[in-house]
Amino acid sequence: MKNILIPIIALLLSVSAYAQKPNKEKMKALKVAHITEELDLTAKEAQAFWPIYNAHEEANDKLIKNSDLKRLENIDGITEDEAKAHLDKIVQMEISRQKIQKEYYSKLSAVLSSKKILKLMNTERSFRRKMIKEFKERHRGDKSKRQ
């Protein structure tokens, strides 16, 4: 029953998300459905996994939200000291991100096998590729309507 129900839910979520512009909640729901379908977690694994996963996502979001990094539009227009300061901020953010990742994998290894953690990493990558592909296809469709 579980094997039939999950793909149906994922399909319904993807159809409803495709019909409207994607927002953060819809993307999250699609990602959760994708991960659930691909990982095939036991009930015990799922109960332990999702709080860890959600805390990790929240920590990453918080890191990005609290970052004061801005994209530099005119690199030629800044001083060497400003460039160095910007690079230092990038390095510090990456160090923070790596600490979050290390803690995340440590916690995951207590509840999932290493193979399932690797499968999770591949699943997240495949989800990103899928969303980028859908965005490009949708964007291409918008361009043809404008012409």
Rank of each mutant, 00 (worst) to 15 (best):
L12H: 03
L12P: 02
L12F: 15
L13H: 05
S14N: 08
V15R: 06
V15I: 15
V15S: 09
S16L: 07
A17R: 02
A17N: 08
A19D: 04
Q20T: 06
Q20N: 10
K21D: 10
P22M: 13
K24E: 12
E25N: 13
E25Q: 15
K26A: 11
K26Y: 01
K28V: 00
K31V: 02
K31I: 02
V32Y: 04
V32C: 00
A33C: 06
A33R: 01
A33Q: 03
H34E: 09
I35H: 06
T36A: 10
L39M: 09
D40E: 15
D40V: 10
L41D: 07
T42H: 08
T42F: 09
A46H: 05
F49W: 02
W50I: 05
P51E: 05
I52P: 01
Y53K: 02
N54G: 04
A55M: 03
H56M: 04
H56W: 07
E58V: 12
E58C: 05
D61F: 12
D61L: 12
L63D: 01
L63T: 00
K65A: 14
L69V: 04
L72E: 08
L72A: 04
E73H: 11
I75P: 01
I75Q: 02
I75L: 11
D76A: 14
G77L: 08
I78L: 10
D81P: 01
E82Y: 11
A83E: 11
K84N: 10
A85H: 05
L87G: 06
D88V: 09
Q92H: 12
E94I: 07
I95S: 05
I95N: 04
I95R: 07
S96Q: 14
S96N: 11
Q98C: 03
K99S: 08
Y105Q: 08
Y105E: 11
Y105T: 02
S106R: 11
K107F: 04
K107G: 05
L108P: 04
L108M: 05
S109Y: 03
V111C: 08
L112R: 03
L112G: 04
S114L: 08
S114M: 06
K115V: 15
K116A: 07
K116R: 08
I117Q: 07
K119R: 10
L120K: 02
T123H: 00
R125K: 13
R125P: 00
R125Q: 14
R125M: 12
S126E: 14
S126N: 13
F127T: 02
R128L: 10
R128S: 09
R128E: 13
R128N: 11
R128Q: 13
K130C: 00
I132T: 09
I132S: 05
K133A: 14
K133W: 14
E134A: 11
R138Q: 10
H139D: 10
R140E: 10
K143E: 08
S144Y: 07
S144N: 07
K145N: 12
K145D: 09
